[in-house]
């Protein structure tokens, strides 16, 4: 554990809780992509199956359970409790275009051919692109609520902080996992455009709207 990893995890946790609280408080999931949320649920499920097979620390297990619970909780709010507020007309990204190629890639580029390892690798590849339906939705509607912008910023920062963590671990522990590093860089790059808008608009008190 180092400061970059911890900050990344807390940023990730903040993002997930921010989204849950936003939906709960406003009794609405308008502007949130249900498809991205489905992809994140798949990501957490396939990655954290190791809850049953390997124990790292109480911290790790606790966070995994929180991420899984919050993710399914979000899906429940979006597709059941507040379903009428879900803006499915603007959530039109075809997620099979992300699900299938990630799956194929996880069979081609993987460290070890075991079911758990392939599922873990799949979760890494899918996570890298899981935000695309949400970013697509923002670009289609041309705007995002400020709280949604904070959510996206926290979620994007998390992997960027993990990249610093991997650089740190490379020098201090000789730890190097190219699969997770390349996917993490791709994931962070996808947010760059949004980061720019967030810094130039949202942080200056303006609403995020596209020109």
């Amino acid at each position: 554990m180092n400061i970059f990893r911890l900050s990344g995890d807390l940023s990730h946790l903040l993002a997930i809780l921010l989204l849950l609280v936003k939906i709960w408080k406003t009794r609405s999931c308008a502007g949130i992509s249900g498809k991205s949320q489905i992809l994140f649920a798949i990501v957490y499920t396939t990655r954290y199956l190791d809850l049953f097979t390997s124990f790292v620390s109480v911290y790790n297990s606790f966070m995994k359970v929180v991420f899984l619970t919050a993710s399914y909780g979000t899906l429940y709010l979006m597709f059941f409790k507040f379903k009428p507020t879900y803006d499915h007309n603007h959530d039109s990204f075809r997620i099979l275009y992300l699900i299938i190629p990630s799956l194929v890639l996880s069979f081609i580029i993987v460290h070890v051919y075991t079911v758990m390892e392939i599922l873990w690798t799949y979760s890494i590849y899918l996570e890298a692109v899981a935000i695309m339906p949400q970013l697509f939705m923002v670009s289609r509607t041309g705007e995002a609520e400020t709280i949604t912008s904070h959510y996206l910023f926290a979620l994007g920062s998390y992997r960027a902080l993990y990249i610093l963590n991997w650089i740190y671990r490379y020098y201090t522990e000789d730890f190097l996992d190219m699969i997770v590093i390349i996917a993490g860089i791709v994931q962070t790059i996808l947010y760059c455009d949004f980061f720019y808008l967030y810094i130039t608009k949202v942080l200056k008190g303006k609403r995020l709207s596209l020109p």
Binding site: S54, V56, S57, H111, E173, D174, F175, D177
Partner: peptide, 10 residues
């Protein structure tokens, strides 16, 4: 190098 199958991150 640590084996890649040591998954200690989230």
């Amino acid at each position: 190098l640590k084996p890649s199958y040591v998954k200690d991150e989230l």
